[in-house]
């Protein structure tokens, strides 16, 4: 397992977490794009040492790199791509309604809180 990959994943995870804690959906979206990379790097690191391309009948099982993490990464990339587009659409819809894409608090909850404090 490569230390460089793990350090890179940790660094990117830090950046992504910072972005996700923002209130602006487009920033959160960027955070999730970076999280997508964290996931791929983590899966690669979990796959062990890099090797030859894992083609059946051409490379021996010992020389080739583990194909499963690559398959998993591919699936994860496809899913995160679709979700990125969906979040962009959501940010756009929010912008049409409110003028911004801020993620707001639960309004009904706020009103109940106010009601209680005013008696």
């Amino acid at each position: 397992m490569s230390t460089t990959l793990i350090l890179l994943a940790a660094f990117l995870a830090g950046v992504a977490t910072y972005l996700v804690t923002s209130r602006i959906l487009s920033r959160i979206l960027l955070g999730f794009v970076i999280y997508g990379h964290v996931v791929v790097i983590a899966l690669l690191a979990a796959g062990g040492k890099a090797g030859e391309a894992p083609l059946a009948d051409q490379t021996s099982a010992i020389d080739s790199s583990d194909p499963l993490p690559q398959a998993l990464s591919l699936t994860a990339i496809v899913i995160s791509f679709g979700l990125t587009l969906f979040m962009l659409a959501l940010a756009r819809a929010s912008q049409l309604h409110t003028g911004t894409d801020l993620v707001e608090d639960d309004l009904e909850d706020k009103s109940i809180g106010l009601e209680e404090s005013h008696g």
Binding site: F32, V38, L43, A46, L90, D101, V103
Partner: peptide, 22 residues
């Protein structure tokens, strides 16, 4: 937006967890 962000975060954790397990 809240719903998507929360669940997306959980999904990301899920994938990283799979990497740990693997």
């Amino acid at each position: 937006m809240t719903y998507v962000v929360m669940n997306l975060l959980a999904s990301t954790l899920f994938l990283v967890g799979i990497a740990f397990v693997y």
